[in-house]
Amino acid sequence: MSNDNIIYPSVHSFSNLSLSDSSRTGFGYNPYKGPSSNAITPETSNILINKKTVSLTPTSFDSIYDRNILKKVPEISLSSFSFLFCEIVNWTRNNSKGIQDLEQRLNTLGYQIGQRFLELVKTRERIKYSKREIKILEILQFIHGAFWKSIFGKTANELEKSQDIENEYMIIDDIPLVSKFISVPKDYGNLSCSAFTAGIIEGALDSACFPATVTAHSVPKEGLPLRTVFLIKFDESLYTRENLRFN
């Protein structure tokens, strides 16, 4: 590859980078070369000292790095989200082999959202008070409270601990946003499209080092036909750590 190739910020270009690639502009990290790939040169030093604006990529002038992510973003319309989610479920259903597979796929889609939101919400929260969640109960309260609020605009309704099983917790949402307009046909059994939300929780917990499996179950109550229980089953290894650290 010639040196004229700009390194674009995408996964695709990453796989194209090799030991012989060097950035044309002097900016951009190449993992195969290590810190020598983006070492400060006379040219880049000059740009940095004089705060010159440079166009490194086609998106340099309206890049995400210049936006303020700490500000609360305006809410999006529920109907447009519902249309999008409807299409997501439909697309997933066409690709899936069965109900379990469908739930698994929705879970996977939610997973990466959870990973991202965890960091984002924590970064936003840090302005007010800086605290990292290191205990099981604290992270659950965080998910149930601040995390839920920033995604769905309200906190979840209940947070419960399973009475029979030590490592199981439940987050209960009376009116889950994602499945507000979804009615499941009879032949789909106990499919719950909130598997998507379960994936979000699982992604957040996993990346915060609280490995867990999260499943969504529809448990209707009188007056609340959409009531959903998110069952969180923590990994056993987590309790070893918790016992060592806090007992």
């Binding site: 910020p9 270009s13 980078l17 950035s23 951009g28 990290y29």
Partner: peptide, 8 residues
């Protein structure tokens, strides 16, 4: 790996 020149 973060290879974006903008990030850098």
């Amino acid at each position: 790996a973060i290879t974006s020149p903008d990030f850098d």
